[in-house]
């Protein structure tokens, strides 16, 4: 009985996403049943849409930059957390992790107030990246904590005893062992940033990101089939990225000889 419930739950979980390809290939312009016929028209329309291309380019730039900065900050925090003892460690780690549970509207409005009202700066993709790094870093820390924890400290000690410097030990021993964790967290941060809407909605200037552009299209019924086609491609891309991330995360834990505790968090 429990198994039946869990399967029903999974169907409930996946039901909305499975509708995306259904309507993306449907030739009717209204997003409703019954379906009309098969078409590739909506996918073809994606190729000629200039605004879409620039929004996508913006989003990829933002997500790429966010992922690199978040993972660098995450590496430092996770390494400090696992390897060293220092005063007020719990409080410091807590502060770094808080954005994980802070409602995004709060992050968005508080940064908007600081940037516009206090400093009088103009909004741009830079402000979006700054905010995305804030919310992505905790995810990177969570993944990298696990990577560093499954690392045997004896390996680093051995390298130092054998004459390597601290820097070369990190480069030659530590880094390769946590590399799968680094790749996994890069991919996760990239996905989060690529998909994030509300912060980008508040903090973007004249250059929009992809979710902000999609949001503006949702008001026009005529554009909906094109959004369905775009959504289908986006979901496929995120599933691909996430599978790659998960594969890397597991590879890392297996390489370090740890047992899999399961899940990104």
């Amino acid at each position: 009985m429990l198994r039946t419930y869990v399967i029903a739950f999974l169907i409930f979980l996946y039901a909305p996403i499975t509708l995306l390809p259904v309507f993306a290939f449907n030739s009717g312009t209204v997003i409703a049943f019954p379906l009309d016929g098969f078409t590739l028209e909506w996918f073809a329309a994606l190729r000629t849409n200039r605004e879409l291309h620039s929004a996508l380019a913006n989003s990829l730039t933002v997500a790429g930059t966010t992922a690199v900065i978040s993972v660098l900050l995450g590496l430092m925090a996770a390494r400090a957390n696992v390897r060293y003892r220092f005063p007020a460690k719990a409080a410091a780690m807590g502060l770094v992790m808080i954005p994980l549970v802070l409602p995004e509207i709060i992050v968005a409005t508080s940064l908007l107030v600081v940037v516009v009202q206090f400093f009088g700066w103009s909004l741009s993709l830079v402000t979006v990246v700054a905010a995305h790094v804030l919310i992505c870093t905790p995810f990177a820390v969570a993944i990298l904590n696990a990577s560093f924890q499954s690392l045997d400290p004896a390996l680093e000690e051995a390298a130092i005893d054998l004459g390597e410097t601290r820097a070369s030990t990190f480069r030659l021993v530590t880094l390769p062992l946590v590399m799968p964790g680094i790749i996994a967290s890069l991919l996760i941060c990239f996905t989060i940033s690529l998909d994030e809407f509300i912060i980008a909605f508040f903090l973007t200037g004249s250059d929009t990101t992809l979710p902000v552009y999609i949001w503006s299209l949702l008001r026009f019924p005529k554009q909906l089939p094109i959004i369905m086609a775009l959504g289908t491609l986006l979901v496929l891309a995120s599933i691909l990225i996430l599978t790659l991330a998960e594969w890397n995360r597991r590879r890392g834990i297996a390489r370090a000889g740890g047992s899999d505790s399961g899940g990104f968090l």
Binding site: L73, G74, M76, A77, R79, A80, N81, R83, Y84, R85, F86, P87, K89, A92, M93, L95, V96, I98, P99, L102, I106, V107, S110, L111, V113, V114, Q117, F118, A130, A131, V133, L134, T137, V141
Partner: peptide, 22 residues
């Protein structure tokens, strides 16, 4: 430890604690 935690901590303070206060 403190040197390592400083950048992520300062980032959280500058972009979260500061703005919340603001």
């Amino acid at each position: 430890g403190l040197t390592l935690i400083a950048p992520p901590l300062l980032y959280a303070v500058a972009l979260m604690a500061g703005p919340l206060l603001a």
